[in-house]
Design a protein around this nucleic acid. Structure first.
Lengths: 219, 219
DNA sequence: ATTACTAGTAGACGAGTAA
DNA sequence: TTTACTCGTCTACTAGTAA
């Protein structure tokens, strides 16, 4: 089943779900980076499995995916849905930590701040909230990194270079904010959060307070 | 990329996105119907491609998918989304044809009608609207067949057997109805539509009138 | 142009087994 | 128990080529 799935998927993307499409074995091979011969064989295998039907005309073959083929793809699609559909909002748990460390200084540079305003739609307060993510949620940071964030370009200032950072829209207790993560970063268990307001004062937060941070997919 | 995707997907389904999971090569092999040796090799390949990270403890390995791995899966997921996301509602164009042919008689059997009521939530009018689907939309019938429909069980009556049919919720000009398709059917270009109301009268339809039918995914 | 055969080679797989 | 090596087999691929 899974052996032919990429060929079947390519045919689906080319429109072979709704109707017959004209496609030569060479074209399919080129699209999938395989030889004409292999593509031809894949087509024969898909036919064998009754995942597609074909009109083999004199000039060019016409291919359409059968309902069995559609069902096969749906199975795989539903697997991915299980994996990804619950990840539009990723919740991170952690505790407030000392807010003006190196990370905070870094992010509060004017070169970043101007971009935050245009990218996120709010002028951030000149300071960050530092949150130490619970050990069990640290893994979710990879999930956030895989989300569509807002690229904030790096710059140079006073002979020091500041790299790209990525801002991910988020909410803390329903207040809009953003998690800012350096584009190239290794292991981390703390994140910097920027917000229109002074979060620490607005929410009366002190070091060690437990907090829930919801990263929101921007797609 | 696609070569390892099923292993990666399986790991994701087992929770290796959020955090490290404990899984032996044998367990992974069993889940994917491959040998322990092959599963072990797949894991090494995934590591090589930096799609997963691993703690290789003394007893059992712990595996987590990296952000690169998540991105790889998202690419494939997004391909499927392109294929399927616009298919929650499938629109069929066609024209009204003579309504009380063999198909209509077949479907109006009491054995079916009672089930329609409990499955669809409305008591159908004792008659069907017959729609001949345009040639260019006939291919979409396969898409509908791949949707989750309501199975209506067959029965025997007067020595004649009536097979299973499947009802797919649909709308005609915003009126709830259902497309009824025999479970085992070959090529067709006409469908039977049932509805709470007498559609032909309610919508003042005559043979040959153009009509748009929207099948709705019940999932 | 096409599709798809045959033949030779590269790569994937599982059994046996070591650590 | 684990993981993962070697090795034989069998499948999958591409080049050449026929129709």
């Amino acid at each position: 089943m899974s052996k032919y799935s990429s060929s079947l998927r390519e045919l689906a993307l080319l429109g072979a779900i709704d109707d017959y499409i004209s496609i030569s074995s060479r074209e399919l091979g080129d699209a999938l980076e395989m030889s004409q011969q292999t593509a031809s064989k894949k087509i024969l295998e898909l036919l064998e499995e009754k995942l597609i039907t074909r009109d083999l005309g004199a000039r060019k073959q016409r291919i359409k995916i059968t309902s069995k083929g559609i069902e096969d793809m749906k199975k795989e699609y539903n697997q991915y849905r299980k994996i990804f559909e619950m990840t539009d909002i990723v919740t991170l748990h952690g505790s407030v930590s000392s807010g003006m460390g190196e990370g905070g200084y870094y992010i509060c540079q004017n070169g970043y701040m101007k971009q935050f305003e245009s990218e996120l739609g709010f002028a951030p307060f000149q300071g960050t909230l530092n949150i130490q993510i619970d050990q069990e949620d640290v893994g979710r940071l990879d999930l956030i990194r895989s989300m569509e964030g807002h690229l904030i370009k790096g710059f140079s200032s006073n002979g020091r270079s500041f790299g790209n950072v990525i801002a991910y829209k988020a909410k803390i207790r329903n207040i809009d904010c953003a998690i800012v993560i350096p584009e190239r970063s290794h292991y981390m268990d703390t994140v910097e959060v920027i917000c229109q307001y002074h979060l620490r004062r607005t929410l009366s937060l002190e070091d060690g307070d437990r907090i829930e941070l919801k990263a929101i997919c921007s797609e």
